[in-house]
Amino acid sequence: MEIDTVGDREAWVVFDAEAGWDVFVGEIDGQPPFLAWMSDTEFDAEESDIMENKSEAMRYGRFSFACYVHRGESWQPKHRRAQMKEIPFFLHRPDGRTVVPDSLESYAEAIPPELRGGEPPDYLGIQNAVVEYHH
């Protein structure tokens, strides 16, 4: 899920400080550079059966949490797209499709279940997550 906080959008996540995090800086195939982090439990639950270690998972973009560092040429299209609709995010599916919810009412259903209120799965190392649009 990519959360674009352009304008009146807000996104925040509270992470579990005791989850055993590793932080990585990288770039994949000319995409904007990123700062990504992964907990030991997330790696064990989602990646350990196909990747040797967290570093390999990062090289293939197999991480849940990151901040991308955009330059003007990569940021401008995202900025324009975010201003076109009153929605808080774009959802990128594993098959390469990008889903943009049609309305504020439908965006709650598009958020992955593990980030919809309640308690996220323990292996993600998240205590709480919020994605909002203020209008």
Results as ranks from 00 to 15, higher is better:
I3F: 02
D4T: 03
T5S: 13
T5H: 02
V6Y: 10
D8N: 14
D8H: 12
D8Q: 13
R9W: 10
V13Q: 03
V14G: 11
F15V: 12
D16L: 08
A17M: 11
G20S: 03
V23Y: 14
V23C: 10
F24M: 07
V25A: 15
G26T: 10
G26C: 08
E27R: 14
D29R: 09
G30K: 13
Q31S: 10
P33Q: 06
F34V: 07
L35A: 13
L35G: 02
W37E: 03
W37V: 03
M38I: 14
S39N: 04
D40F: 00
E42F: 14
E42H: 15
D44W: 00
A45E: 06
A45Q: 05
A45W: 01
S48C: 15
S48E: 11
D49N: 11
E52S: 11
N53T: 07
S55G: 11
E56W: 10
M58E: 02
R59M: 14
R62Y: 15
F63T: 03
F65W: 15
A66V: 04
A66S: 15
C67F: 14
C67T: 11
H70D: 02
R71Y: 03
E73H: 06
E73D: 14
E73S: 05
S74G: 07
W75E: 01
Q76T: 06
R80Q: 09
R80S: 11
R81K: 09
E86W: 03
F89D: 00
F90N: 00
L91C: 06
H92N: 14
P94S: 13
D95P: 09
D95I: 05
R97G: 08
T98P: 02
V100A: 07
P101V: 03
D102Q: 12
S103Q: 06
S106K: 05
A108M: 07
A108Y: 10
E109F: 09
A110C: 11
A110G: 04
I111V: 15
P112C: 10
P112Q: 11
P112I: 12
P112V: 13
E114K: 07
L115S: 07
L115I: 08
G117I: 08
P120E: 06
P120A: 05
D122H: 06
Y123Q: 05
L124S: 03
G125F: 00
G125Q: 00
G125R: 00
I126G: 02
I126H: 01
V130R: 14
V131D: 00
E132L: 14
H134N: 12
